[in-house]
């Protein structure tokens, strides 16, 4: 028994498996785009998915956005106080939310709330042969089931991220201005003078759009590719959440290094 050779073989096998799956996912992405026509020609299909991914994620986004804002306000005030610049609290809260925390945290909450349920739904449809039945009825399951869920997620994500950031700014205002007593005027004016729409807000929206594409694609792919058993579907759900979170963080690093390179 040659242990090192065995290990090497396992490593090779795992690598080939991963790369093969990545290629399969890329091909799947292309096919989803190809069959996306019906998602827009028959808008009710996509609207229904916006309801399930967007509207039903609203509560968790509103509440967590508010709390992240409250914490940022509290911690930010505590730190800024040491430098005697508490009037910069608005800037701190708004910049960290619009640039990073809003898109990233909203995407992670979205992956665990909406992404996992999309995977479960598609996985169960596969396990109970609903997708095959649809295919036998001459209805393409990618066009009818997968693409609307993908686009529903892509459309919902930037809106959710914007709502998250707005709630966070309000949360920071609540704790900083209402409870601690930072000047109301300087909270907003400092914020406005340092937050640029195109640079900070728009880049945040672009980020959340990219995250929306990534998380939605992972969710529909894991569902469609799941092993059609109860165990297979539950594993696929776990993979959706784990892969989405890692993908969001990795993409965030790449996007940040491109967007905010060499400025301020």
């Amino acid at each position: 028994m040659a242990r090192p050779a065995d290990l090497l073989r396992k490593l090779g096998h795992a690598t080939v498996e991963r790369v093969w799956r990545l290629g399969f996912a890329a091909r799947f992405f292309w096919v989803v785009l190809l069959y996306s026509g019906a998602s827009f020609r028959r808008l009710p299909l996509t609207l229904r998915e916006i309801y399930f991914s967007g509207v039903l994620s609203l509560i968790i986004i509103l509440v967590s956005g508010l709390f992240v804002g409250l914490v940022l306000g509290l911690q930010g005030f505590e730190i800024l106080q040491r430098f005697g610049s508490t009037e910069a609290l608005g800037t701190l809260v708004a910049l960290s939310l619009t640039r990073e925390l809003g898109p990233v945290l909203a995407a992670i909450f979205f992956a665990s709330r909406a992404g996992s349920s999309v995977t479960a739904e598609i996985g169960l449809m596969k396990a109970t042969e609903q997708l095959k039945a649809m295919d036998m009825m001459a209805v393409n399951p990618i066009a009818r089931v997968v693409a609307p869920r993908f686009w529903g997620g892509v459309i919902s994500m930037p809106l959710l991220a914007a709502i998250f950031s707005a709630m966070g700014v309000l949360g920071g205002w609540l704790i900083g201005v209402v409870f601690i007593g930072v000047d109301d005027g300087s909270y907003w004016s400092q914020m406005q003078s340092s937050v640029d729409f195109r640079f900070d807000v728009w880049n945040g929206i672009v980020k959340s759009f990219v995250f929306g594409v990534a998380v939605s694609l992972i969710a529909v792919f894991e569902g469609y590719d799941s092993v059609p058993t109860a165990e297979g579907v539950s594993r696929a759900i776990t993979r959706t959440v784990v892969t989405s979170v890692l993908a969001v963080l990795a993409l965030d690093f790449v996007l940040t290094s491109f967007m905010f390179r060499g400025t301020s």
Binding site: E121, L124, M125, T128, E129, Q130, K132, A133, M134, M136, M137, A138, N140
Partner: peptide, 24 residues
């Protein structure tokens, strides 16, 4: 091709093992 198959399948019906009704 996929299109030809779909055309043909419109004139086929299939009953799956456990019905495969759309649960939603």
């Amino acid at each position: 091709s996929q299109a030809e198959l779909y055309n043909l399948r419109r004139r086929m019906g299939m009953l799956f093992q456990f019905g495969a009704l759309f649960t939603d």
